[in-house]
Simulated assay, not measured.
Amino acid sequence: MHAAPPTSQESPRDSASVVLLQDGAAGMQVLLLRRHAKASNMAGIYVFPGGKLEREDHFADGSTHLDQPLSTLAQQLSEDGTTPATAVALYVAALREALEECGLLLAEPQTADRVLDASDARKRLRGGQAFTNMLETLALRLQTRALRPWSRWITPVAPSMSTRRFDTRFFVARAPAGQVARHDDEETVDTLWIAPRTALEQYRDGAIDLAPPQIMSLAHLARYASVEQVLEAASCRRPPTILPQAFDDGETRVICYPGDARHAVRERALPGPTCLQYRERRFFPEKGFDALFD
Rank of each mutant, 00 (worst) to 15 (best):
residue 2 H to V: 10
residue 3 A to R: 02
residue 4 A to C: 07
residue 5 P to F: 04
residue 7 T to N: 12
residue 9 Q to P: 12
residue 12 P to G: 04
residue 13 R to P: 00
residue 16 A to I: 12
residue 17 S to T: 13
residue 19 V to I: 15
residue 19 V to E: 06
residue 20 L to E: 07
residue 24 G to H: 11
residue 25 A to G: 05
residue 26 A to F: 10
residue 26 A to T: 15
residue 26 A to Q: 15
residue 27 G to A: 10
residue 33 L to A: 10
residue 37 A to S: 13
residue 38 K to L: 09
residue 39 A to I: 02
residue 43 A to S: 14
residue 45 I to L: 09
residue 45 I to W: 06
residue 49 P to T: 02
residue 52 K to E: 10
residue 53 L to N: 06
residue 54 E to P: 01
residue 56 E to W: 05
residue 57 D to I: 07
residue 61 D to P: 05
residue 64 T to A: 15
residue 68 Q to Y: 04
residue 70 L to V: 08
residue 71 S to L: 04
residue 74 A to E: 13
residue 76 Q to Y: 05
residue 78 S to C: 09
residue 82 T to F: 01
residue 86 T to Y: 00
residue 88 V to S: 15
residue 89 A to T: 07
residue 90 L to G: 05
residue 92 V to A: 09
residue 94 A to K: 06
residue 97 E to V: 04
residue 102 C to F: 07
residue 106 L to V: 00
residue 106 L to I: 00
residue 110 Q to L: 04
residue 115 V to L: 13
residue 119 S to C: 09
residue 125 L to Q: 02
residue 129 Q to C: 05
residue 131 F to I: 02
residue 132 T to W: 01
residue 132 T to C: 08
residue 132 T to V: 14
residue 138 L to Q: 05
residue 141 R to P: 12
residue 145 R to E: 13
residue 150 W to V: 06
residue 153 W to K: 07
residue 153 W to G: 06
residue 156 P to C: 14
residue 157 V to P: 00
residue 159 P to I: 13
residue 162 S to H: 08
residue 165 R to K: 15
residue 170 F to E: 10
residue 170 F to W: 14
residue 171 F to Y: 12
residue 172 V to T: 13
residue 172 V to M: 10
residue 173 A to G: 00
residue 176 P to S: 10
residue 176 P to D: 09
residue 180 V to P: 00
residue 182 R to E: 05
residue 183 H to T: 03
residue 185 D to M: 12
residue 191 T to V: 09
residue 199 A to M: 10
residue 201 E to C: 03
residue 204 R to W: 13
residue 211 A to I: 14
residue 213 P to R: 10
residue 213 P to K: 11
residue 225 A to M: 08
residue 225 A to W: 06
residue 227 V to C: 08
residue 227 V to S: 01
residue 231 L to P: 01
residue 233 A to P: 03
residue 240 P to A: 08
residue 245 Q to N: 12
residue 252 T to A: 05
residue 253 R to W: 06
residue 254 V to G: 04
residue 254 V to D: 10
residue 258 P to K: 03
residue 259 G to D: 05
residue 263 H to R: 08
residue 269 A to C: 04
residue 270 L to Q: 11
residue 274 T to R: 10
residue 286 E to T: 13
residue 287 K to I: 03
residue 288 G to F: 13
residue 292 L to E: 07
residue 293 F to A: 03
residue 294 D to W: 03
